Simulated assay, not measured.
Amino acid sequence: MRIGIDLDGTIADNFDLLVQTFNEYCGKSLQGKDIKQYSLCKTYNITEEEFNRLMDKKEEGIIMSSPLIPFAREKINQLVKEGWEVHIITARHPKYRDITENWLQNKGVPYSGLHLLNSHDKLELCRELKVRCMIEDNVHNAYQLADGGVNVILFEAPHNKCWPWQGIRCRSWLEIYQYIVNQWHS
């Protein structure tokens, strides 16, 4: 059985680093709980070009400095031991493949496939891989995937708490693992 897992915000806990980076750039003092939408351009009232320029300078450092989401490594390892094939499906640019692979290896996160799409459109790949379920924190991605027939677990984050979601919403990797085991016990 195959499972798809987003990387940033579901395995890599980079949210606070992003908020800190954009606070410094914009001269603001927002906290993670203040972020109510996924788009930092809208949150910080900056253009896509400004966002991209800042990320070109800072993203590699954010990737390398990101801690793990609590229990992600342990529960992903447990899923792999139980026969799940893990595909990490991320909107990261492919130019970050090497540092992403190094980060995953250093953190002890196993995977069968690493897919850096440079796009938030993950539906076609999820269908192609025939993933049983996708774990995602971007509610817009979750809507698209669910509308396309993919089972989605929305990993709760400040930027998706206020959005309506009719599917499964989990607050931790302990909950995610328990749901998967209960739903698709092999």
Rank of each mutant, 00 (worst) to 15 (best):
M1S: 10
R2W: 12
I3V: 14
G9D: 10
A12H: 07
D13S: 13
N14D: 15
N14V: 01
L17F: 06
T21F: 01
T21H: 01
F22C: 03
C26H: 04
C26S: 15
L30K: 14
G32Y: 06
I35A: 07
K36L: 12
Q37R: 13
Y38A: 04
S39Q: 11
L40W: 09
L40Y: 13
K42F: 01
K42E: 15
Y44L: 06
N45H: 15
T47V: 08
T47Y: 04
E49N: 11
E49Q: 15
F51D: 09
N52C: 02
N52I: 10
L54P: 06
K57G: 00
K58Y: 05
E60M: 05
G61T: 01
G61I: 00
G61L: 00
I62R: 05
I63S: 02
I63M: 00
I63Q: 06
S65Y: 03
P67V: 05
I69Y: 08
P70G: 07
F71A: 13
A72R: 02
R73V: 08
R73W: 00
R73H: 04
E74C: 06
K75H: 14
I76F: 06
N77A: 09
V80I: 09
E82T: 00
G83A: 07
G83R: 05
G83N: 08
E85D: 14
E85P: 03
V86F: 03
I88W: 03
T90G: 02
T90F: 04
A91T: 05
R92Y: 03
H93A: 12
P94H: 10
K95R: 12
Y96V: 01
Y96C: 03
R97K: 14
D98A: 13
T100V: 05
T100M: 03
E101H: 09
E101V: 14
N102T: 12
W103E: 08
Q105V: 08
G113Q: 10
N118H: 14
H120T: 13
H120G: 13
D121W: 06
K122L: 08
K122W: 10
K122M: 08
L123Y: 05
E124W: 03
R127W: 13
E128V: 06
L129Q: 11
V131H: 01
R132T: 15
C133F: 10
M134E: 09
I135N: 01
E136L: 07
N138D: 15
A142V: 10
A146M: 11
G149R: 05
V150C: 02
N151V: 08
E156F: 04
P158G: 11
W163V: 11
W163F: 13
P164W: 11
Q166L: 12
G167D: 10
S172Y: 06
S172T: 13
W173P: 09
E175R: 08
I176K: 00
I176F: 07
Y179D: 08
I180P: 02
I180E: 00
N182P: 05
Q183G: 01
W184F: 15
H185C: 10
